[in-house]
Simulated assay, not measured.
Amino acid sequence: MRLVVISIGRLKQGPERELSERYRERFDDLGRKLGFRGLDIHEIPESRARDASTRMTEEAAAISAATPQKSVLVALDERGDNLDSVGFARHLGRWRDEQVANTIFAIGGADGLSPDLRRKANLRMAFGAATWPHQMVRVMLLEQVYRAATILAGHPYHRA
């Protein structure tokens, strides 16, 4: 199973990009041993539309266009489920074992994800009730993906 993070907006050079890359590389090293085919990041420019509804619609269309058919879609959304790390690892492990080709993680822009895209998601996931900048969501997501791999591998990184 290939994991793909589709994110509205680009990470500039700096600590967020460095930390994101660190967790992506750690996952790649461990993930291949666990049957994952990699972790890609696809950045989509933010819509320049004047109103929020149009921006979300345009960004959702771009995310949908970048999502392969028959993929599992995970929407990062503040209204989503608050999963613990073990529960998240179970989802990834189950999808891998079911031979899902791609798991797509969608991170919206400043206005969030469109309601239609959220409804299409197989899982809506939150990092608490707070609103986070998309740069921080990406770092937290990549850390949780790496942590999930360590849980699946029985590695001591995760201590509950």
Rank of each mutant, 00 (worst) to 15 (best):
D84Y: 08
D51V: 03
G93Y: 10
A106V: 01
F105Q: 04
L76H: 08
D51F: 06
I107M: 02
K70F: 11
D77S: 03
R37L: 14
A62C: 09
G31D: 10
V100T: 15
I41L: 15
D29R: 15
D28G: 09
R96D: 08
P68I: 00
R32L: 13
R37T: 07
A52T: 10
G38I: 11
I41T: 13
T67G: 02
G31I: 07
S53I: 03
G35C: 06
G80S: 12
G38V: 10
I44F: 07
A61N: 14
F88P: 04
G38W: 12
V74E: 02
L92W: 09
A110V: 15
F88L: 13
R90F: 04
E59K: 01
G80N: 08
A106H: 01
H42E: 04
R48M: 07
D51S: 00
A65S: 14
E98T: 08
R79W: 10
S53M: 05
G109C: 05
A65D: 12
R96K: 15
S47Q: 12
E59F: 01
T103Q: 02
A60E: 01
I44G: 02
E43T: 00
F88M: 08
A49I: 02
I63H: 01
A101H: 08
T54A: 12
R79S: 10
W95F: 12
R50T: 13
E46G: 03
